[in-house]
Design a protein around this nucleic acid. Structure first.
Lengths: 121, 121
DNA sequence: CCCAATTACGAATCTCGTAACTATG
DNA sequence: CATAGTTACGAGATTCGTAATTGGG
């Protein structure tokens, strides 16, 4: 999540050079950040989220800090014993949840498909 | 997308050791693969998709090959002048499109939010 | 001191471009 | 030969775990 640019006013409105001569559209968000965030809110702390996501607290902390920096808004306030989402965090969570649901549907769909063409090996 | 395991019968049903002593749940899919796939179908070839996604054809080809391997199904057939989605590919695309829409909504939402708490710097 | 989170740093992993190659027409 | 895609390889970018540190209770 180490990025040398900041998000613009609208999503996907920037281009940067990358690895040689090509360029790349800037993108916000990735599914892992969204998942970590939803988990953190659901379980009330980064520590609890880390357990459920099978990663270290540090990974969650870093990922979510990056997410906040990229979005430009604070997603939750850090309390002594866990976290509490901000107004933005709550609003973001609602949208995020539907994205995660869609992702799960897609995974389920793919693993349950029996229509043929399965690759062998 | 280099993974040493294969997807199981249901999504997220496997655990593997990773980087030290922790373990990690296996996950299918990432947003980039889905975006590349949708683009490839929309534009009819990997080459065209690569242009629109600002990456090389090789990156698209690799990403989608990995996706097919992970899913266990072929997503499209390679023709002399482009590609054509399989039955599975078409079905997958329908679900994938709604996920991508959700993602875009989330990006738009985040960049258009004006409720406060914006991080300075 | 305990607990939750963050920062620092390095190793493992992943992404993707260049180059070389295969296949179809 | 021209076009579309694939494979191989390595450089650069990202992820994440361990260790050390900070801050509230």
């Amino acid at each position: 999540m180490k990025r040398d640019w900041l998000p613009g006013k609208t999503a996907c409105d920037k281009v940067r050079p990358v690895q040689g001569s090509l360029e790349s559209r800037v993108r916000l968000l990735n599914i892992k950040q969204i998942r970590y965030f939803a988990s953190a809110v659901a379980y009330g702390s980064l520590t609890a989220a880390a357990k459920h996501e099978y990663v270290s607290v540090q990974a969650i902390s870093k990922s979510l800090s990056d997410l906040e920096r990229e979005l430009g808004y604070s997603l939750f306030s850090r309390k002594s014993h866990g976290i509490a989402p901000t107004a933005f965090g709550n609003a973001f969570l609602r949208e995020a949840t539907s994205v995660l649901k869609g992702f799960e549907r897609l995974e389920t769909f793919a693993t349950c498909w029996g229509g043929g063409a399965r690759i062998s090996g």
